[in-house]
């Protein structure tokens, strides 16, 4: 586990609007927590769509300094940004995986001021998986 990064992170929330792969109760809990807080945040309907468009907003977000992203698997998020010529900075980016985190944990983590960088570097294998992550087979 990496050490917390210095600086208060900006917040990015992905609603994964065009697929039903994130549990609705998790999205609802995170969005409510964000809106109940007095924090500024960025919310996008679908990171995949922005990546496909190579939308310049991804470069803006990647350049924001410390960044906490509520979306899906960190490996996917890392390369979605990279595909849009907006590489994330490994040392200052934390991705909360809304596909696997319980709603209460995700909601608490998104507004927490500490940032624990967790972008994968190098080949990601099972040894890199957090203990709480479920890894369904296919």
């Amino acid at each position: 586990m990496s050490a917390p990064a210095a600086g208060v992170p900006a917040i990015l929330y992905c609603h994964c609007q065009y697929a039903q792969v994130v549990p609705p109760e998790v999205k609802a809990a995170v969005l409510k927590q964000l809106c109940d807080s007095n924090l500024p945040f960025e919310a996008v309907p679908d990171l995949c769509e922005l990546s496909a468009r190579r939308d310049p907003s991804l470069q803006r977000l990647a350049a924001a300094g410390p960044l906490k992203i509520a979306a899906c698997f960190p490996r996917a998020v890392k390369w979605l940004f990279a595909a849009a010529n907006a590489p994330l900075t490994p040392g200052t980016t934390e991705v909360l995986n809304l596909r696997t985190l319980p709603a209460a944990d995700a909601a608490a983590a998104i507004v927490h001021p500490d940032l624990t960088p967790n972008l994968p570097t190098g080949k990601v294998t099972q040894a890199d998986a957090p203990a709480s992550s479920s890894t369904p087979s296919f």
């Binding site: 208060v8 992170p9 900006a10 917040i11 609603h15 609007q17 969005l31 964000l34 809106c35 007095n38 924090l39 500024p40 945040f41 960025e42 919310a43 996008v44 309907p45 679908d46 769509e49 922005l50 939308d55 310049p56 907003s57 470069q59 803006r60 977000l61 350049a63 924001a64 300094g65």
Partner: peptide
């Protein structure tokens, strides 16, 4: 707004936001 496909920025003062872009 998200369900209609629009990105949203909630601007405030407590934490930084990403800089502006040409959107």
């Amino acid at each position: 707004l998200l369900e209609r496909g629009f990105g949203v920025t909630r601007a405030g003062a407590a934490r930084p936001l990403a800089p502006a872009d040409p959107s």
